[in-house]
């Protein structure tokens, strides 16, 4: 009799402990793009070690960057420098202009397509020995227009723009 009372008390304490354990609900909202029907997955109870409730839902849809019939004008200013050993100011201008054009093309490519960045730090004996950041851009730029070119004190600046239209990408 004494042992049976002890067993009942032990089981009751165990069930109380189980009720107090942290429980989290994970809710995933999804939508069928074809039918437009929303599907609600049944909430799943997951025991979370942190004891915090976790809710996962779809990332809200971004608005289209280029709406139908809309245009986006991207403008950049490229800079170029003339080399030291030029035979005439005209040559210096021509070479600096070419360099500035290349810089403007690079800036356009960076804005439209993006940049790849790789970084590497070498740390030895708790000290930074070498810190390297590499950036690369690779793109094809078409129909860029030169708006203005200025040349002042050996520095050439080329203002360039490109117009992106919805029709260019909707084939």
């Amino acid at each position: 009799m004494k042992y049976s009372l002890l067993l009942i008390a032990f089981l009751g304490a165990g069930s109380l402990m189980a009720d107090e354990a942290p429980v989290s609900n994970i809710t995933i909202n999804c939508e069928n793009p074809k039918t437009g029907e929303t599907c609600q997955k049944s909430p799943t109870e997951v025991i979370d070690a942190t004891g915090m409730d976790t809710v996962v839902s779809d990332v809200p849809k971004k608005d289209a960057f280029l709406a139908k019939g809309a245009e986006v004008r991207i403008s950049v200013i490229g800079q170029g420098v003339a080399p030291m050993n030029t035979s005439s100011p005209a040559q210096a201008y021509a070479l600096a202009k070419r360099a500035a054009t290349a810089d403007a093309y690079r800036l356009l490519a960076e804005k439209v397509k993006g940049v790849r960045i790789d970084g590497q730090d070498l740390i030895k004996n708790m000290m930074v020995q070498r810190s390297t950041v590499r950036t690369t851009v690779q793109a094809m730029v078409k129909n860029a227009n030169v708006v203005e070119t200025t040349f002042k004190e050996g520095l050439c600046e080329v203002e360039m723009e490109i117009v992106l239209a919805h029709s260019q990408f909707s084939n």
Binding site: A102, Y105, R106, T132, T135, T136, V137, M140, K142, A144
Partner: peptide, 23 residues
């Protein structure tokens, strides 16, 4: 205007920058 391929790489080592652009 016909379109050029742009290839640019830039390296920054210990805060010193150098870049190469090929069109």
């Amino acid at each position: 205007a016909l379109g050029l391929d742009v290839k640019h790489s830039e390296i920054n080592t210990n805060l010193q920058n150098s870049s190469t652009t090929i069109l």
